[in-house]
Design a binder for these strands. Structure first.
Lengths: 176, 176
DNA sequence: GGCACGTGTGCAACTAGTTGCATAGGGGTC
DNA sequence: GACCCCTATGCAACTAGTTGCACACGTGCC
């Protein structure tokens, strides 16, 4: 269960309120661990009762007030403890893989069209990640510590998209 | 929601009981859509009430009786309909990615050890898939229809493992 | 003035999946 | 005989996450 730990990482970088975290998730961390704002609110409340974070109500001008969360020492310790636990290999779950295998029981043309769309989608996303990498990390060899880690996770996104494009293209071409 | 459709594919290939499906999932389809036997039993019951499958109690000698499921016409139609729906891009969720990004807040050594284990694990799995491919599909260029699809899904597994090995190795080497 | 949209938090109901356990017989082994 | 593992099905309780909606206020547009 990693959402609370992903939130601890985000909040360690900078304290924030629920909706702001949801937006940050949409833009960076969430590429690798997505969450809706409802889920984020729910988990933040639990983290608060567990003493991992403290909340402070912040009044804003021309906007509703927000609850800004800050990581406590307990929270930092929980994050450090979690990092030391071993994570097993992630299961690979792919709906499109099930459809590929099922294709002879239905409309293969529809599936091939779906796959063509997915390839376009993955190409866009890969381009997006590569643009981010080029903009934010023009000289990756010089990186250390946290920026290096963030860069390497972004690299994972790029490699992941490369995998999808390769596989889906292989399927399309085998059925061309 | 693809488990019921994965089960329809498995049952279309050959009727089976719940536990047998769980074992088959462990060996092939489940590499791409895993499920515990409890979840499989639950879903099979729902599929039965929805009229997608019919169940027949089979008496065995020296073993408990089993409920063997067979796909109905309604079930085949449900599968065909599902294949024609479009699946969106799958979200990439990786606990190890969260840890990579969090590494500077905890024990990096422990994480690097975890990653080294994962690389070994992925190599074993990749070798397993490649052995399956070599044994069952010695001449992939000649394949058509369903065997081709099964082969291409297996190829997806191999490519996926290649991605993991490449990414995790890149992380390890950047922190060597 | 009305409407859409954005900020901000949150509830309620649901779905999917996990974890732990129960039951009940058969076979092997020490 | 006690113990463990395998086949086979399943319940109960829980966790994680999704979907849809509500409310309250502010800003901009036409």
């Amino acid at each position: 269960m990693a959402l609370e730990h992903a939130l601890l990482v985000a909040l360690s970088e900078r304290p924030a309120a629920g909706l702001e975290l949801a937006h940050r998730f949409d833009r960076s961390i969430g590429f690798f661990w997505s969450a809706t704002h409802q889920q984020i609110y729910k988990v933040l409340r639990r983290m608060e009762t567990d003493g991992w974070v403290t909340a402070e109500t912040v009044l804003q001008t021309g906007r509703p007030e927000k609850r800004e969360y800050t990581v406590t020492d307990v929270g930092h310790q929980a994050l450090a403890d979690w990092i030391s636990t071993t994570t097993p290999r992630a299961g690979f779950r792919s709906e499109i893989a099930v459809k590929m295998r099922a294709a002879s029981y239905g409309d293969r043309g529809a599936l091939l069209a779906n796959i063509a769309e997915l390839i376009a989608d993955h190409r866009v996303r890969q381009g997006h990640y590569e643009a981010m990498a080029a903009r934010d990390y023009p000289d990756p060899d010089q990186l250390t510590g946290q920026p290096l880690d963030t860069y390497l996770v972004l690299r994972g996104g790029i490699l992941q998209e490369t995998f999808w494009i390769a596989w889906l293209t292989e399927y399309l071409e085998a059925h061309a």
